[in-house]
């Protein structure tokens, strides 16, 4: 998949993007509203992509069953409406008109249009944003089934939403197009070197931003991530570069209640509010900060975390 670069006001707004899409490996791109539109518009020019935009409406006066029947007929599928209704877990809403559904259910029903797409690649804009927990789970299940045969691309502005069903996630913003390291890797347990004792007395973490050196007290820090080799310290929704490696930081911050929850993340356990379970094998930590931040949690680290927290 390739995108043309786009300029706005003489500045590079959308860099030249290239990535691979294969069935069974959903791709997520975290980006802002405007870049989302630009990406969608470029995709619309190719045949073979089914675009689901956030503005997609629905035939409000049909009942759910009539809508599914219509979609089956118009897309020439062989399935029966009754069995599909069961698959979609919509049996109870069978006779309800779309306009009488709850907002979350209405979006869920509208999203089902992607199920009927014949195109080999599906592109969804913010699929999970308007869904409640229950509908999210249902739709994730349907997307998982779909992604076995189809290429899937999810455009969202929310890391949490991308984490739900994407295996590969990129971040697209003013600084370019970069992959996020969210893979689970058990084999990557690095040997922990015993550091010198005096380090514990050093309390400040020094970071750099716009050529200024900024020092943080460890409790201020929300989490630390490693993006393409550089270390970003997140404090109150902002991020700052740090010259230390994650392993060094882990050593220093161990006594301040920090935890290496993932190969590329260290999280301040004081700020963890929730452990989110997506599937049996994928977890995230939601932080209790001003901005809704979510940090991935490796499966291998879950046990360690549980003993640490005495759960």
């Amino acid at each position: 998949m390739q995108f043309q670069p786009m300029y706005e006001g003489g500045e590079l707004f959308l860099p030249e993007i290239e990535f691979n899409m294969t069935p069974g490996q959903p791709v997520g791109i975290i980006t802002d509203l405007k870049r989302k539109q630009l990406v969608m518009n470029q995709l619309a020019e190719h045949a073979g992509f089914y675009l689901f935009r956030v503005q997609q409406g629905e035939y409000m006066r049909l009942t759910v069953e009539e809508l599914i029947t219509f979609l089956i007929h118009v897309s020439e599928r062989k399935e029966h409406a009754a069995s599909l209704m069961e698959y979609f877990a919509l049996k109870e809403e069978r006779k309800v008109k779309i306009k009488d559904l709850s907002p979350s259910k209405r979006v869920y029903v509208t999203l089902l249009r992607v199920f009927f797409a014949y195109q080999p690649a599906l592109v969804l804009e913010e699929p999970y944003f308007y869904l409640e927990e229950q509908d999210r789970r249902q739709f994730k299940r349907i997307l998982d089934d779909l992604s076995r045969e189809k290429q899937l691309l999810i455009l969202t502005s929310n890391l949490e939403d991308a984490l739900i069903s994407c295996d590969v996630i990129y971040r697209l913003n003013g600084s370019g197009f970069h992959p996020l390291d969210i893979r689970d890797s058990e084999e990557d347990k690095q040997d922990v070197h015993k550091q010198d004792e005096p380090n514990i007395t050093l309390q400040k973490i020094s970071t750099k931003r716009n050529d200024k050196v900024i020092l943080f007290n460890p409790p201020e820090i929300d989490f630390i991530e490693s993006v393409e080799g550089s270390i970003l310290v997140h404090v109150g929704g902002e991020n700052y570069d740090c010259a230390l490696t994650l392993t060094e930081l882990e050593q220093r911050l161990l006594n301040f209640g920090f935890f290496r929850c993932h190969r590329s993340y260290i999280v301040n356990l004081q700020k963890v509010r929730e452990i989110i379970t997506w599937t049996k094998n994928s977890y995230s930590l939601r932080l209790n900060t001003s901005q809704d931040a979510v940090v991935p949690l490796s499966r291998s680290k879950l046990q360690e975390l549980k003993t640490l927290l005495n759960i």
């Binding site: 935009r53 409406g57 118009v74």
Partner: peptide, 14 residues
């Protein structure tokens, strides 16, 4: 057109 369903119809085999 108002509900964007026409565009969606164009993406079906219809």
């Amino acid at each position: 057109k108002e509900r964007n369903t026409l565009r969606s119809l164009m993406l079906t085999p219809a």
